[in-house]
Amino acid sequence: MEPVEVKVSDLNVWIGGSHILKGVSMKAPPGAVTAVMGPSGSGKSTLIRVINRLIDLIPGARVEGKVLLGSLDALRADPYEVRRRTGMVFQEPNPFPHMTIYDNVAIGPRIHGLARGEELDRLVEWALKMAHLWDEVKDRLRDYPHQLSGGQKQRLSLARALALKPRVLLLDEPTANIDPVSTVKIERSIMEYAKTTMATVIIVTHTPQQAARISDHILFIYQGRVVEYGPTREVVLHPRHDLTRKFLGGEV
């Protein structure tokens, strides 16, 4: 599968009357994890919702600029096409409560007609293993997810996204409400997925520690503007901007 670089240029987003993103440009290379960090309300979540066009669902949102997923012009393309190539994990664990664990993972491949029968079984197993959930649920694939813990639910949400083998994986503070054990597993999954499949991973996080742990590049956004962008080591050890230093120190 082709590696896909995500390239955002001069992106402006307004929701209702307010200017959420102000001329944001960034790059996220394949085979690496790019962390988007910043205080809450800085526009991080909006940024990744532009990349997979979930922004279309928000009434009164207006978008200007350019977003490229490889050669696909994401803002001009059919949103369903864009979303098929990207996967997303949300802040709140949201496996579909009316579907079994198996069906939650199988739903993506099914609706796109990608696999069936044993092939689908193998794909589900692969996705659940990739999300480090397989061992915990392999004997109860026909159960409903409400018995799972919050962390397990979140890994199930991750597996659902991974089952489509998205070239771009977007994560919106996926571990914000999750227990530490699951957080570690999710972080490992994300890194492994990026490295082993040459996928492009973009993770929104509000904790600099997580960004430092798992990312190769950091994008720091403050009040809708890019403050700093660079390799993780550099941004963490030698922040060029005062605001970044304050954020890393927990002052912003």
Partner: peptide, 11 residues
């Protein structure tokens, strides 16, 4: 969030 999840897998 469930609607978003549905759309995010290309529904």
């Amino acid at each position: 969030t469930y609607r978003e999840a549905g759309y995010s897998i290309g529904m």
